[in-house]
Design a protein around this nucleic acid. Structure first.
Lengths: 346, 346
DNA sequence: ATGAAAGCGCTAACAG
DNA sequence: CTGTTAGCGCTTTCAT
């Protein structure tokens, strides 16, 4: 910056002011302003990020933390976030927690340490129902860093959040299975202490009740780990398959589990879509149809909504009026048939 | 830091020195050092990232830029990178180019602006054979920022790089197809100006020749865009299918294209693994077997190797001896059968 | 063995 | 309208 000032024979203040767009407010010669801008372009000058951050206390950077990045899920979410944040002149710093709460805490600290202005977080939930639920997330939410929770929220601390209507999605899926003639609908899920899954479970039970079916806990399979080599799902489905009242339909709450369930049932000699009907949360990869009903989640829109909300929060934090009230955004999932064999937009 | 110093009645220099580990070199009282460390822990003090970066010119952060993040491919790469960089005390800043060279350039600039110490880059190649090949990548490589290219490299500028043996992988796949009895092996790929794909093509042609087969350009299908809705592949395969000498095997160079090819051939009434044999670069998702030969790429190891190489480069950049010579690491892919119907470790 | 002081590159209040 | 000045929080000579 000194270079620019020196070469133009003006003071650094002048340059700084012009660059900041305050040139007019300080009645700086239009001609001078042009010369400064030109010189800056000529020299390719950009204010030093650290010096700027050091005394502005702002970086123009948003931190995004996700459990993983390799699922289509996350990719769409990120795209949605970028769609909104880039045009707003913000940059993104991405981190993953790999489903590990400790790593997540470290990622969050790293981002805070690097001075992100705000945080977008899909947080990781441990298996089971542990006593200490995501204490670091609770701390974060109570802290000063503007944060928007995505896809799931903390049950004990209110916060800005963007989620989908998991309960409604599950209900719609079960209703559809009932329409297909299913009379004994089972449920397969991870045993995670997470609001989205809890909502799906409520939806499942609610829809059963509404359809005049009874809820049988035996038909619920909860997996206690993410290990793909585990045989717990196989064992549970085998046990269910031996019963006289074996389920003729399943609602599965996640992508991978849905495909695994289909494969195991086929292994039992059942034909998916004939002997047993399946619905799952998730989306089929390109060039592949699973023959299931899909509760497709509006991830792109979710990312956009979350980013927009965060920008609003950031803005209101600037304003002297003080903090805006917390916002809850709920998006609707779509029920879609995936498979050439039956109706729908396969 | 002033707080720590004041509460202990020492100067900020002392604290700084101790924190930097230079306490002993400056003969600072062991007792004093302990007190400083304790106080720091007690107060949860951490040096300000920006102030530090501002006069150190280092951040302890590595930039990673990938075309996309949602493929298992990238996830493994990232895991490999993290495996090495985290224990080394480095942090990662992740960015994506979304297959867009302009976005990529901007991502690289952003990272440089944020003071990353080094860069790990899987760069994006445009379709076709454009005259100006990745000029920004060339500039980057000529610049001062330590950079390791991953999975592909720039044909015009030598650089540190970690790639796989694409030619060998393609050759092995073709050899296997020949063993399976294929006599007319086709080739499906994107028409990208990229070293890895060029190597695969060489491997394909070389293996044909070695097996005493002739190379027929008609059997090569090159796609000119990434649009999943495009019908170019369908059309090309249909045309090939009508020929008397229709291919009885295909080598496909990417994951998605491989699955799409399989699906289209099935649509022609062909049975994969019987009427036509397929090999592709890529990996089947969990709980899914495609009935193809897979050239599985060592992405995890690739990430690790790239990170290790970058650390080496960083270290040698510190050393007064000057820059180390450029290194090229080549890793071997694995040929694997995916499908329960045939031998192999399905 | 420890303190004082300069400076990294920038912003912003203040005086002219 | 422009220049001077005092930090932002830290590292690093250089004295003592």
């Amino acid at each position: 910056m000194s270079d620019v000032a020196r070469q133009l024979g003006v003071s650094r203040t002048t340059v700084s002011l012009v660059l900041k767009g305050d040139g007019d407010r300080y009645h700086i010669n239009a001609e001078t302003q042009r010369r400064v801008l030109d010189k800056v372009a000529e020299l390719g000058y950009r204010p030093n990020y650290f010096a700027r951050a050091l005394n502005l206390g702002r970086t123009g950077t948003i931190g995004v933390v996700l459990p993983e990045v390799f699922e289509t899920y996350m990719a769409e979410l990120i795209h949605g976030i970028e769609d909104v944040l880039y045009p707003a002149g913000q940059t993104i710093m991405l981190s993953t927690s790999r489903f590990d709460p400790d790593l997540e805490r470290r990622s969050l600290e790293q981002l805070a340490h690097r001075g992100v202005d705000g945080l977008l977080l899909v947080f990781t939930c441990p298996f089971g129902r542990p006593r200490r639920r995501a204490a670091h997330v609770a701390d974060l939410l109570r802290g000063p860093l503007p944060t928007v929770l995505v896809d799931r929220y903390h049950p004990a601390v209110d916060s800005n959040r963007v989620v989908q209507d998991d309960e409604g999605g599950a209900r719609a899926a079960v209703e559809r299975l009932v329409q297909q003639g299913c009379r004994r609908i089972g449920y397969v899920s991870f045993d995670l202490d997470i609001t989205s899954l809890a909502a799906r479970f409520r939806g499942y039970k609610g829809a059963l009740r509404a359809a005049g079916h009874r809820y049988y806990p035996e038909r619920v399979v909860l997996l206690h780990e993410r290990n793909p080599a585990a045989t717990d799902l196989r064992d549970a489905l085998a046990a269910l398959g031996r019963r006289r009242d074996r389920p003729d339909g399943f609602l599965v709450t996640t992508d991978g589990l849905g495909l695994k369930t289909a494969r195991l049932l086929e292994g039992q000699g059942l034909r998916i879509g004939e002997d047993v009907h399946l619905a799952r949360f998730g989306t089929d990869p390109e060039h592949f149809t699973s023959g299931m009903w899909l509760v497709e989640q509006p991830h792109l829109e979710m990312g956009r909504a979350a980013a927009r909300l965060l920008l609003r929060v950031l803005e209101s934090a600037e304003a002297p009026a003080g903090r805006a009230p917390l916002e809850h955004v709920v998006l609707a999932p779509t029920l879609r048939w995936s498979g050439p064999e039956r109706g729908g937009d396969a």
